[in-house]
Design a protein around this nucleic acid. Structure first.
Length: 107
DNA sequence: GGCGTGACTTGAA
DNA sequence: ATTCAAGCCACGC
């Protein structure tokens, strides 16, 4: 049983997000056993700067790019997702559920 | 050391 | 059906 820290786990899961897939903060938090601490997942993402973590593949539960504002540019997050074959409409991922990647189910 | 905020979620009114 | 509120933990001032 690896008892890693919350942040470390978040990074690990985020790194395992497959190409063209997206997940939600709550999904990761749930996988970590802290479904009520989804905020911490987002907070951890604030520290991914400089890491190899595709934070752009992590959005809120409705598929809205809530944290796109924290990226370098304003539409960088959307550009990256569109580059992976996804479709973004009004900062929202189209067919989000179709591309939704649940760590609890996949892992 | 206390208070507020934050890339969220879920449940109740 | 929609709107409001509370909870969660960590970091900053």
């Amino acid at each position: 049983m690896e008892e890693q820290n919350f942040f470390d786990k978040v990074y690990e899961v985020a790194q395992q997000i497959p190409y063209g897939r997206v997940t939600s903060y709550g999904a990761i938090a749930k996988y970590l056993g802290a479904a009520r601490s989804a905020r911490m997942v987002g907070w951890a993402m604030n520290y991914v700067f400089g890491k190899d973590i595709p934070a752009h593949r992590v959005v809120n539960r409705v598929g809205v790019l809530t944290g796109k504002h924290h990226f370098e540019g304003t539409n960088l997050m959307q550009q990256l997702l569109e580059n992976e074959g996804l479709t973004i409409k009004d900062n929202q991922i189209v067919d989000f559920q179709k591309y939704f990647w649940d760590p609890v189910q996949e892992l």
